[in-house]
Simulated scan of single mutants.
Amino acid sequence: MSVKGRIAAVLAAALVSAGLMTPAPAHAAVSRAQLALRWAPIHYQDVDATGSHALGGRSDYLTRVDFDGDLNGRNNWDNAGQPGASFAAHVYYSVVETGSHWYLTYFFFHPRDWIDHPFFETEHENDGEGVTLAVEKNGTDYGVLRGAVTVAHTNFYSYVPAGSSWTNGRETIDGTLQTQSSPYDSFAHPVTAQERGGHGLKAYPQYTIDGDGVVYYPSTTAETPSGTNDRDVQYALVDIFAAGGLWAERDNANLFAGLGTFAGDTSGGCGVGTFSCGTNSANAPWGWDDGDDLPGRGEIATDPAKLAAEYFTVPGTLSRSYTYNPYSGAAAALKEAARTAPRIVD
């Protein structure tokens, strides 16, 4: 520091001490909600209006688990077709943190996993798939995006954005995670996409819109699509760890048939005219599993540092010690349940 700089600093300190000057406030770290909003995906949802189970395309719209006004997982297929059903767009998220990284999991919910033909595929009540992003802390407010793992049924797919320092690990990287500017903020967001019907989720354009579809943008507003081909719909985020949220309801037997597995039955016409209807066939993030890979059931959300270490080669520091992880309080129960639970076919 120059002589003038030292003099200015001493003078400023003296003025603060004398009560004649207020010190500048320290820069506040962004909240987890702000972090989740900044990295939330721009999301391409393919839509099909074919057949009665599609509900004119509404079965492919994103919504909340309690879109019908209750937390009963066994009436969601039925209530999706009722006049009072809300398809205002919401996406659930959780944030866990280590000394080196943030891990952001986004969970996309549909009341129906549906098909419109009778051959070899099953439908089921409730559908939950998503993505976990790894963001490296680099001294900036929001860090830098390094990698992503998506959930498509019972398989995981890994991606890195252009320029990422992360490379293949035990699993081969499946593609590039594209980014796109949002009209609702100043950030470039990762871009994801889901297929119609079964709602497998991958990085765009490995899935994309084929004909009708909805493009969802992260926001603080929950909009309802105006129709099956609405390319500008805002979605709001819902914290999985919020009071009364999904994690708090994990032992609610009306919503979950087991730890991480949504309750669902065959009422309301599920499976009628198709091959079959499965029961208790959808998962929350702490139930996601790729049975062929080493991370255990649910660890994509509950222990994502382990997932990152398995799926990628990471230069530099990859801390495995969590400084914030509400899932960890139930880690023993989660691991025991994962060890003994049957594999859910989504």
Rank of each mutant, 00 (worst) to 15 (best):
V314A: 10
G296F: 10
S219N: 15
Y159P: 00
A13Q: 12
R170V: 09
S86M: 06
Y322M: 06
F156L: 02
V215R: 14
Y207F: 13
E336A: 15
N280I: 04
A330L: 11
V149D: 00
D66N: 15
A152F: 05
P118F: 01
L237V: 10
G163L: 06
V160A: 02
G287Q: 08
Q234M: 10
T98H: 04
G258W: 00
H124R: 01
M21V: 07
V135D: 05
D292Q: 14
R297W: 00
A257M: 09
Y93I: 00
F241M: 10
V96G: 00
G73R: 01
P342Q: 14
T274F: 03
F312S: 12
D60S: 08
A309V: 11
G269A: 11
P304D: 14
W102G: 05
L177Q: 02
G143S: 07
Y324S: 15
L334Q: 15
S86W: 06
C270T: 08
A12F: 03
M21D: 04
T274M: 13
Y142E: 01
T132Q: 01
G51H: 11
T261G: 07
D232I: 04
H189V: 06
L71T: 11
S2Y: 01
V135M: 08
A36Q: 06
G169S: 09
A337W: 13
N254C: 05
L55M: 11
A341L: 11
R64Q: 13
E310P: 01
G56I: 08
G278H: 05
G81N: 03
Y324K: 13
